[in-house]
């Protein structure tokens, strides 16, 4: 199976004067449709790695290939387009736009595409709202929802453009265990249904154990890499 996302010899060094290297010669490949988790201690470089995979940050050295394309060679606007069309992000802090309603936030990736919202797209958004269970609050402003609801909305938003890759950085990091459990079940269902590739950072071993593959980072290197089933 061809890798959908490939990291080759990635180094990441922060700082100009005082240099701190946080990723060391890292190589990883991800299979299309797989559900991967990344675990590791705080400060081990998980977020840094995820941001590099999502083209939000550039590696100091090495190559990021997305669907076989070298992202380092893409122009800024092409990167933006790639992010819009191929990648969905769920961040630890949900980051909905407080000026917009839930439904509008979920439609945002389509708006960014500068597409007219066809009935079919509208239906897709409504469906996603149902999937994440936010029918009752879909016309609320993002700020008028609980943390769990906002995180669900952020997940629905990340899925709006049917991304081939979904990147999530501790999406349940500041939610109670019950809510976070339901969100993982949701992610799992969606992964199965939409066949996107999921790469999720978590600090919760129990959750990681329910994914196809667990990658553990330690001090900027892959410490263990275990595929299950």
């Amino acid at each position: 199976m061809d890798s959908i996302l490939t990291l080759q010899n990635i180094d990441k060094v922060y700082g100009r004067k005082i240099k701190t290297q946080v990723i060391f010669d890292l190589n990883l490949e991800f299979n299309p449709g797989s559900f991967n988790s990344i675990i590791g201690q705080s400060g081990s470089g998980k977020s840094t790695l995820l941001n590099i995979m999502g083209t939000l940050d550039r590696p100091t050295k090495g190559t990021v290939l997305i669907e076989g394309r070298d992202t380092g060679a893409l122009k800024k606007n092409d990167l933006s387009k790639l992010r819009n069309e191929a990648i969905g992000f769920v961040f630890q802090f949900h980051y909905l736009l407080p000026e917009f309603t839930t439904l509008e936030n979920i439609l945002m990736p389509q708006w960014i595409k500068n597409k007219k919202i066809e009935p079919e797209i509208q239906r897709r958004a409504e469906e996603l709202i149902e999937v994440v269970g936010l029918e009752k609050v879909k016309n609320n402003l993002a700020t008028d929802m609980s943390g769990g609801q906002q995180q669900r909305a952020a997940i629905a938003r990340a899925l709006m453009n049917r991304p081939r890759i979904l990147l999530a950085d501790e999406p349940t990091g500041n939610l109670d265990s019950e809510t976070s459990d339901s969100i993982y079940r949701l992610l799992k269902d969606i992964n199965r249904e939409f066949q996107s590739t999921f790469i999720v950072i978590t600090h919760d071993k129990k959750i990681a154990e329910r994914t196809d593959r667990i990658i553990e980072l330690k001090d900027g290197r892959v410490y263990t890499d275990v595929s299950q089933k």
């Binding site: 999502g54 939000l56 800024k76 606007n77 933006s80 387009k81 790639l82 992010r83 819009n84 069309e85 992000f89 961040f91 980051y95 736009l97 407080p98 000026e99 945002m108 990736p109 960014i112 595409k113 938003r157």
Partner: peptide
Amino acid sequence: SKQIGILKAMGVNDQS
């Protein structure tokens, strides 16, 4: 800046 950052992460380009 939060909103702008998140919009850019979602693929809004610099011109927009």
